[in-house]
Amino acid sequence: MKVWIEIDQCTGAGLCELIEERVFAVGDDGLARVRQDGRVLPPGPDNPAEVPDSYADYVSEASRACPGGCIRFEL
């Protein structure tokens, strides 16, 4: 599955990283990024992380919990 952050909408709450740290990380600027194989990727839809579909439940939960509604994913 592909996951990315619409960083303009990120509120910096950090819930995503607390729920699924394999996919999300909060950067030094306090805003969320996605990771792939442990590597933090640049923000935006042009740089989605490709993660196993088996992560979908947690990614989906992080997306629901996100107060900014900024997590996007495609299965």
């Binding site: 709450a13 819930l15 607390l18 729920i19 919990a65 996100c66 107060p67």
Partner: peptide
């Protein structure tokens, strides 16, 4: 609603 990290237990209960 707009949840925050202090609401993690609520998220777990819903799960």
């Amino acid at each position: 609603e707009h949840l925050v990290p202090a609401d993690l237990a609520i998220i777990r209960m819903r799960r």
